[in-house]
């Protein structure tokens, strides 16, 4: 994008953070572009049509829908957070605006969040220490807002042993610390 300006991760580093604690692996995501898409009032039908044409899934409440290049999850009534590969979609907001027209309000969200992919054989015990989500019973693709150590986060279940967490970028260190502390307590 701008060669003169080097990007920094949420931890002030050049490379994404990776931590292993016992069976748990925590990997910071720096290669995901994010944007919010909200239907303008009374324009849901228009948005649905445009989204379908653009290959953008708009799943129902509490759900994450994967896709290529766009994946998305429901965050509020008629509002989604859209994920796409950062390398090809750094300008995700412009691209979505162009694709969706004036039936949607689009806002770049890439750097509002720090994302982590968590993997282990089973994340249930870790989630029990971190948030009130009933992770064991949640279906794969379950996406919800929840709270981890005072921080509002989005949690996406991708399997019994895989989850993605988006938390406030400025609190990346506090969020990682919370996950690490819980993992150490369980290791």
């Amino acid at each position: 994008m701008a060669d003169a300006l080097k990007a920094m991760t949420a931890f002030g580093l050049r490379e994404p953070k990776q931590v292993k604690i016992g069976a748990l692996s925590i990997k910071e995501l720096t290669d995901v572009a994010l944007a919010s898409v909200a239907a303008r009032k009374g324009r849901m039908a228009d948005l649905s049509r445009a989204a379908a044409a653009a290959g953008l899934p708009l799943p129902g409440p509490s759900t994450h829908a994967p896709g290529d290049p766009y994946s998305s999850f429901w965050v509020a009534p008629e509002m989604w957070l859209v994920e796409a590969p950062f390398a090809s979609h750094e300008l995700i907001a412009d691209m979505l605006r162009a694709a969706l027209g004036d039936g949607a309000s689009v806002t770049e969200q890439t750097d509002a969040w720090v994302g982590f992919d968590l993997t282990a054989d089973d994340l249930t015990a870790l989630m029990q220490r971190l948030c009130n989500v009933d992770f064991a019973m949640a279906p794969d693709g379950h996406a919800t807002r929840t709270v981890m150590e005072h921080l509002g986060v989005y949690l996406i279940k991708r399997g019994k042993g895989a989850a993605r967490v988006y938390g406030p970028r400025s609190s990346a260190e506090s969020l990682l610390h919370a996950v690490e502390a819980a993992a150490v307590a369980l290791a």
Binding site: A76, P77, G152
Partner: peptide, 8 residues
Amino acid sequence: YHEQGDRS
């Protein structure tokens, strides 16, 4: 207000 949820 569902602040730590969907903001409804």
